[in-house]
């Protein structure tokens, strides 16, 4: 958008804090989760033990990553009870709040790729390798297939997501190199490359959250002034268009695409407050349509 920065309008209209509300909340959440994990090894305060693959909080609450557990199941191994209970809890949680909430609110790699995306924009790096966004689902299928055929959790040998988090908690080693590689890849090779195109962890969680009730909705889409700021900041911009611009085709205002990460950045960055968190059920095509215009807009 030429020299104007995405979100500048929102900052001037709503104030800096209000225009970064969800971003700040998200960063706080990411840091808090990491801090909880680090409190044990660094300060000896064992509120949470383990890492994102499996953790035990306050010696009672088990949480298991269902993706890694699914791979383990596919190798033919039967996990212990606590591992299964932990996976069930996590599954239910993400079924409700949206699977890719994991990506934007929990994943330790997200700040890294967000930084790469921000810097890419700042430095004006144009051009990006073209790979279909569906690639991640193929990689997901491949990792599951490998587990089923090869008898091991092969993806965990190279998974930069778990490697970074495990590294921060249990000793980094060369995991920083892989993290840097993802950063450089996102910065120079492919815009939003890792999280938006390749990562099978995100792909898994997106499938998990396909029917989640908690959604971002373009409730006041009639107020949209086509500034395009939301498309600029969104890590998965393809999810916005149907909801924001679909009033004419009878599409409701709720962003239903599974790859919306519920990061809330579009809410922050919109000076007209078009977006808000809401439920998927309030999705009548007339919702958020032109209030002044005559109602028969949606018929097809």
């Amino acid at each position: 958008m030429n020299s104007r920065r995405a979100g500048a309008e929102a900052v001037s209209e709503k104030g800096w804090l209000a225009a970064h509300r969800w971003l700040l909340a998200r960063r706080f959440c990411q840091l808090a989760i990491l801090a909880l994990f680090l409190l044990g090894p660094l300060a000896g305060i064992w509120i949470v033990k383990g890492n994102l693959a499996y953790s035990l909080s306050l010696d009672t609450l088990p949480l298991t990553d269902p993706y890694v557990l699914l791979q383990s199941l596919l190798t033919g191994h039967r996990p212990e009870r606590l591992g299964l209970i932990g996976a069930a809890i996590v599954l239910v949680f993400y079924l409700v709040v949206g699977g890719r909430v994991y990506c934007s609110w929990v994943c330790p790699l997200n700040p890294v790729t967000d930084l790469a995306g921000w810097l890419r924009d700042r430095l004006g790096i144009r051009g990006s390798a073209h790979v279909a966004r569906a690639t991640r689902y193929w990689i997901l299928a491949m990792t599951l297939l490998l587990a089923a055929l090869g008898g091991g959790i092969a993806w965990e040998l190279v998974n930069p997501v778990s490697m970074l988090q495990r590294g921060l908690i249990f000793g980094l080693g060369a995991a920083w190199m892989l993290t840097l590689a993802v950063f450089v890849f996102d910065l120079f090779v492919m815009s939003r490359g890792w999280c938006g195109h390749l990562c099978p962890v995100g792909a898994f969680y997106s499938l998990l959250g396909r029917w989640s009730p908690l959604r971002v909705t373009a409730a006041k889409r009639a107020a949209c002034n086509d500034c395009m700021d939301c498309f600029e900041v969104c890590p998965e911009p393809q999810v916005i268009r149907p909801a924001l611009k679909g009033a004419g085709q009878g599409i409701g205002p709720v962003i239903l695409a599974a790859n919306c990460t519920n990061c809330g950045r579009c809410i922050d960055v919109c000076s007209k407050d078009v977006f808000a968190f809401g439920l998927r059920f309030n999705n009548h095509p007339d919702d958020g349509a032109q209030p002044a215009a005559p109602s028969p807009t949606a018929t097809t």
Binding site: G40, W46, A53, H77, R166
Partner: peptide, 22 residues
């Protein structure tokens, strides 16, 4: 195929001899 690399064994070893491979 069975280990999900969570490090719980490392944490609960009272002698701290276990480590997760880097």
């Amino acid at each position: 195929g069975a280990c999900i690399r969570c490090g719980m064994c490392v944490r609960d070893c009272p002698y701290g001899i276990l480590a997760l491979a880097k």
